[in-house]
């Protein structure tokens, strides 16, 4: 059998997904046997021009991690789509926008101000912020354009499969690679993960208890046996796709929601919000307000990984219809 051609790329990402590929450990050698790596910025040094020079659909499998945050991300996403037979959205950022997607609560100007100008540690007397084009005596320099809005990969190009997770668990990644190598492909659009929400595979005991207060993780020592939500700590498990093996809750950490919404879910954040609201043990509006005020950063908690693909998508801009 001819060797497969494999591309791995990162958009707006932290690099964790690339590292999770390395987490395949000795199986990575197997990948070396099965495939030629035509692009992997983290580990190898091919050029974009090499990819551009290829015939369309030359690459057998492209693992694209990271969100689409700037014009370079978009350009390469489109390029790799053209050149790849199978494009896999790898990790929460590519699948749902991920943590960079929380940038949609702001806009480009606010982000630049915050990063380059307003902070105590900014030493930027000339008030320089990145520009897509700048002219210097030697000529014109360009940078990718930074977008106002973060998108998931699927929002910009057609995607064949999704492997969620922050980072994706190596066993799911391996499962996907095996399926592709063996030609035993799942239906297009499949999410390589569980079908039900995390609670289904959570080993903790649940009784449907309600809570009188919400606590932050730093303020409690969690019981290891009882449902985290019933201990008054927000856990995103009820509205988050399972299949991760309940890694976090087994480590006594609440689910952060990285596997994103479950199949056909309307909106992970609002569904979480209503599930969390239903655990509040009070009928008194004032007391309920007091309890909900204890929820720190609701947008960042409930939409932690999925804001760009939610019904909200982003904060409404002034003057926007």
């Amino acid at each position: 059998m001819a060797k497969l051609k494999l591309a791995v790329y990162w958009g707006a990402a932290c690099g964790g997904c690339d590292v999770s590929i390395l987490d395949l450990h000795e199986k990575i050698l197997k990948i070396g046997e099965l495939a030629d790596i035509v692009l992997w910025p983290l580990a190898a040094d091919p050029k974009y021009s090499d990819i551009e020079a290829m015939e369309d659909k030359t690459i057998d499998l492209c693992l694209f991690n990271g969100a689409v945050r700037n014009s370079e991300n978009l350009e390469i996403a489109e390029l790799l789509r053209r050149k790849s037979k199978i494009l896999v959205s790898l990790g929460s950022c590519a699948c749902f926008g991920g943590i960079p997607g929380l940038g949609n609560l702001f806009n480009k100007k606010e982000i630049f101000n915050s990063v380059y100008l307003d902070r105590e540690f900014n030493a930027n007397e000339e008030q320089i912020v990145p520009k897509a084009k700048v002219t210097v005596p030697e000529g014109e320099l360009t940078l990718p354009e930074f977008y106002n809005t973060v998108s998931s990969l699927e929002q910009v190009v057609d995607v064949d499969y999704f492997i969620p997770g922050c980072p994706p668990p190596p066993d799911l990644l391996w499962k996907a690679i095996e399926a592709i190598v063996s030609g035993n492909l799942p239906p297009k659009g499949s999410v390589i993960a569980g079908d039900k929400a995390l609670c289904h595979e959570c080993p903790r005991k649940r009784e449907g208890r309600k809570v009188k207060e919400f606590k932050r993780l730093v303020d409690v020592i969690l019981d290891e046996e009882i449902c985290i939500l019933e201990q008054g700590v927000v856990c995103n498990g009820p509205a988050t796709r399972g299949g991760c093996g309940a890694r976090c809750v087994r480590a006594n950490i609440p689910c952060r929601g990285c596997f994103g919404p479950i199949e056909d879910a309307l909106d992970q954040g609002t569904q979480l919000l209503s599930a969390i609201a239903s655990t509040i043990d009070s009928d008194n509006p004032e007391e309920i307000k007091k309890i909900t005020d204890q929820l720190a950063d609701p947008a960042g908690t409930f939409y932690r990984f999925s804001l760009p693909v939610s019904m909200l998508k982003r904060r409404k801009e002034e003057g926007e219809e």
Binding site: D195, K196, A197, L198, C199, H200, R206, E207, G208, R209, K210, L229, G237, P238, G242, I262, E263, S274, A275, S278, T279
Partner: peptide
């Protein structure tokens, strides 16, 4: 049932006590 993950969010909020929980099927 194929979608229900057994999170029990619904069990104690029913004002009519109509929601029960099947412990075996979760």
């Amino acid at each position: 049932a194929s979608r229900c993950s057994g999170c029990m969010s619904c069990v104690n909020i029913c004002p009519y006590g109509a929601v029960g929980f099947d412990k075996e099927q979760k």
